[in-house]
Write a protein that binds this DNA or RNA. Structure first.
Length: 804
RNA sequence: GCGGGCGUGGCGGAAUGGCAGACGCGCCAGACUUAGGAUCUGGUGCCGAGAGGCGUAAGAGUUCAAGUCUCUUCGUCCGCACCA
């Protein structure tokens, strides 16, 4: 029988329309069924549209979702738009259109592109972070955070991008570069709203123990949080009624302190400026440090700089000895207390500084050569009064902590590298922060019933040169009455960062149209936590941390039922350009999915995205490789010409079909899509070698292939009259007894080297095989008269004969 | 410096400690044909005419058996980085 050619351009739109009309993939509110919540990071709808890298995550979770539906789960696989953000705003400014107009256009384009790939999203649950019905609840959660003391205002040095004219969080300025424009970030003193994420540092760490994340993701989060344990110790200033607190992880080396260092910006320097004889020099040094670029701070690390603070001396609280104090930029204001005790004998940085400035080095732990470098290992304590003779770091730390606590000069403590989350942005296209500044009452939250606090319409979104948001120029927005006392007051005019809306969107999907709450308790109890969340590595120390923080907070105040939002997290590898470089417009190596789909069809595109290599690894795009997948689908299509009757698997194909069901079922769960697809190719190759296949075999192949390439499977299924659509069918199961052939070929080895092959019955037991196989003439020939010392038989694999 | 990976054909990559290179791309040969970005069949790690030998970054070790486990070295990628 001859079939018409396979034309994906015709069948794909046809099935996409059918799925849409039938609401084929809408999650139901039948809470009695087992649920499966599959999540991908909702896209930021940029003007550039999708490139072939974006759908990799979606395709993987789409395959898993489609399979789970066929396995009887009530699957929630939603999509939405993370649409607030600076790129849109910058585009809007440049082209003089409203960001909302740009956003709508981009969202429509993204949705259209995604639909063309045939993802089984539940579009009825779409969310959009810029929709007032959505950001009402972003603001609501913010107010809850405020109510519980998790929001505070502080004037500190902040990361500021002069190009984007915006304050950035630590997470958004990693490596000293702005996350949006990649320009240099500078440190400026500024009044900023912070979210107290550090209060959740320990919970964020502990929570990792109960979730299934890859080790590298856990490690990155642990490193980012950067917990260290140590002690806070107070050193007095000689001749002054003032103490300066330092943080150290090595209180056991207190007797080795020969100087102290303060960050150049330390406020105590200013407080005692009149006692300092070289204040001019210090101010000049401070200015010099502020000008240093990130490159100079990190790459020229070895060259320590600093200035002695003349007129101030520290007193070692254990010895009473006076030590000099320096201002040096290897100590930073943002970590610990901004001041340290320096122990050059046992800290390499202090050692380098001491060498350069000619400061004493006192050994308190034996075991190294402190003339050559600092010794940080274990050893016998010396020159340390009551600590002398201790040899174990842990014990000496415990002993000294006991002593300083008794003396009231210090205490054990912990520090984190993670800092509180700088939360306000001086820009237009974000959620307005629902706070009011009242002269009498201070900062007053907008009442819950007034939410959403709408983003006002403006003519001009240019960021202010005065470091203020464009909202500050709109008098009708700024001027309001204090919700508490009714006096005239001013609104906060900064907006929230892009990460706000994405910190809880997975909760809204559970019940997206709810007007009374961000989601009903019933919906949350049923759907949460997310069962499987796939996304990019670039979000590990931002979105993934922020959203865990918000969720843990909502759990603590009883708004959600589970402490961790995501049970399992996986990450896809990046798709690189054909040249092996990251895809970018400037390199000209971007592959556009629309063109690929026009060329080979969405089904082949989806398949290649999964077949090209290990899912979690970066991989270069190859259009020829993608065409190989199209060739395979052509072969699957032409199987229609080879059909014969039969409701049961044929004897010849039974084993391979069962193996394929098993391998595809198991590999999909482990995201080993490439080997799952390879196995289906093997099956099809075998069918071509045989020349025929029956309906039972074809049906199974179509069911197994349907999560990867759904359109072609539906079309063949319909053409062959196999009944209700594939997406409503059950996932096939395999028969354990049909996984091996009756006769198997094994390798015959001598001393571990393959010397020949042998066909044996698959049922042969280990005992019988080891007994009888060596006696066979063909085996004897290989052994060649040598003495057999040992025989190892591995069923289905090999026979190894150890000879002398 | 700290943390986490990864090193296998011309290329992308397979391999619960058990026949290295599945599957695909590319390439070679043949068949077929209303010459196509078709399709089908066979071949394709390296050396060698062949028998055979050698092969998973390098070296050692454990084992009947190592790409896989252990140690050392080298290379490479990612993240953080003067974090006291």
């Amino acid at each position: 029988m001859h079939v018409a050619p396979y034309i994906p351009g015709e069948i794909e739109p046809k099935w996409q329309k059918i799925w849409e009309e039938k609401q084929a993939f809408a999650a139901t509110d039948d809470y009695s069924k087992p649920k499966f919540y599959a999540l991908i990071e909702f896209p930021y709808p940029s003007g550039a549209g999708l490139h072939v890298g974006h759908p990799r995550s979606n395709t993987a979770m789409d395959i898993i979702s489609r399979k789970r539906r066929m396995q009887g789960y009530n699957v929630l696989f939603p999509i939405g738009w993370d649409a607030f953000g600076l790129p849109t705003e910058n585009f809007a400014i440049k082209n003089n259109v409203h960001p909302a107009v740009v956003t709508k256009k981009n969202v429509d384009h993204f949705r259209e592109q995604l639909k063309k790939i045939g993802f089984s999203f539940d579009y009825s649950r779409e969310v959009d972070t810029t929709d007032p019905n959505y950001y009402k609840w972003t603001q609501w959660i913010f107010l809850k955070l405020f109510e519980h003391g998790m929001v505070f205002r502080d004037k500190t040095l902040v990361n500021y991008c002069p190009n984007c004219k915006v304050v950035l969080s630590n997470e958004d300025s990693q490596g000293g570069k702005c996350d949006i424009c990649h320009g240099d970030v500078v440190q400026l003193p500024k009044d900023v709203w912070y979210l107290r994420i550090t209060a959740y540092a320990d919970k964020l760490l502990q929570g990792l123990e109960n979730v299934e994340y890859p080790e590298n993701i856990k490690q990155q989060q642990v490193n980012w949080i950067g917990k260290s344990t140590g002690a806070f110790v107070k050193f007095a200033f000689a001749g002054l009624d003032e103490k300066i607190e330092i943080y150290t992880t090595r209180p056991d080396t207190l007797f080795g302190v020969t100087f102290m260092v303060m960050a150049p910006e330390h406020p105590l320097i200013d407080k005692y400026a009149d006692k300092i004889s070289n204040m001019d020099e210090i101010l000049a040094y401070r200015e010099e440090c502020a000008k240093k670029t990130e490159f100079e701070r990190t790459q020229l690390v070895k060259d320590k700089t600093g200035v002695e603070i003349k007129g101030l001396k520290g007193i070692n609280p254990l010895t009473g000895k006076e030590v000099p104090i320096f201002a040096a930029d290897y100590v930073m204001m943002g970590y610990g207390t901004g001041a340290i005790m320096a122990v050059p004998a046992h800290d390499q940085r202090d050692w380098e500084f001491a060498k350069k400035f000619g400061i004493d080095i006192i050994e308190v732990i034996k075991g190294g050569d402190i003339e050559k470098e600092a010794y940080t290992g274990d050893g016998e304590m010396v020159n340390s009064a009551f600590l002398n003779g201790y040899t174990n770091k842990k014990e000496s730390i415990a002993r000294v902590l006991e002593e300083i606590e008794k003396m009231g000069i210090g205490k054990a403590g912990v520090q984190y590298k993670m800092k509180d989350w700088a939360f306000n942005r001086q820009r237009y296209w974000g959620e307005p922060i629902p706070l009011v500044h009242c002269e009498k009452c201070g900062v007053v939250p907008v009442p819950y019933e007034e939410l959403p606090l709408l983003l006002p319409e403006v003519e001009d979104f240019q960021p202010g040169t005065d470091g203020k948001s464009p909202l500050a120029r709109i008098e009708s927005f700024v001027n309001c009455t204090c919700p508490k006392c009714g006096a005239p007051a001013q609104r906060e005019t900064d907006t929230m960062p892009q990460w706000a809306g994405s910190s809880w969107y997975f909760l809204r999907y559970c019940d997206p149209h709810n007007a009374e709450a961000f989601a009903s308790k019933e919906a949350l109890n049923y759907w949460m936590p997310v069962d499987w969340y796939n996304g990019g590595m670039e979000h590990v120390t931002r979105h993934l941390l922020y959203s865990r923080f918000w969720h843990q907070f909502l759990y603590d105040i009883g708004e959600v039922n589970c402490p961790e939002p995501y049970m399992k997290r996986t990450a896809q590898g990046m798709i690189l350009g054909a040249d092996g470089e990251k895809m970018s417009k400037s390199r000209g190596n971007v592959e556009n999915p629309d063109e690929i789909i026009a060329d080979i069809g969405a089904d082949a595109f989806r398949m290649y995205e999964m077949f090209m290599g290990a899912f979690d690894q970066a991989i270069p795009w190859s259009t020829n490789g993608a065409r190989g997948c199209r060739k395979f689908l052509d072969r699957v299509w032409r199987l229609q010409e080879m059909l014969v009757d039969g409701d049961e698997y044929s004897a010849e194909l039974k084993v391979t079909v069962n193996q394929t069901i098993k391998k595809v079922s198991e590999d999909i769960e482990q995201m080993k899509f490439n080997t799952a697809i390879a196995q289906m190719m093997t099956l099809v190759n075998e069918v071509y070698a045989k020349g025929t296949l029956n309906h039972a075999e074809y049906k199974t192949l179509l069911l197994l292939l349907s999560p990867v390439s759904p359109h072609i499977c539906e079309e063949i299924w319909e053409k062959q009259g196999y009944g209700a659509p594939v997406y409503t069918q059950s996932w096939p199961t395999w028969d354990e007894n049909s996984l091996v052939k009756d006769e198997v070929e094994i390798a015959v080895q001598v001393n571990g080297k393959v010397k020949g092959k042998l066909m044996i019955p698959a049922t042969l037991t280990r005992e019988t095989a080891q007994e009888e196989l060596p006696r066979l003439p063909q085996v004897q020939k290989i052994v060649d008269g040598r003495t057999i010392v040992k025989v190892v038989f591995v069923p289905g694999r090999l026979l190894n004969i150890v000879v002398k």
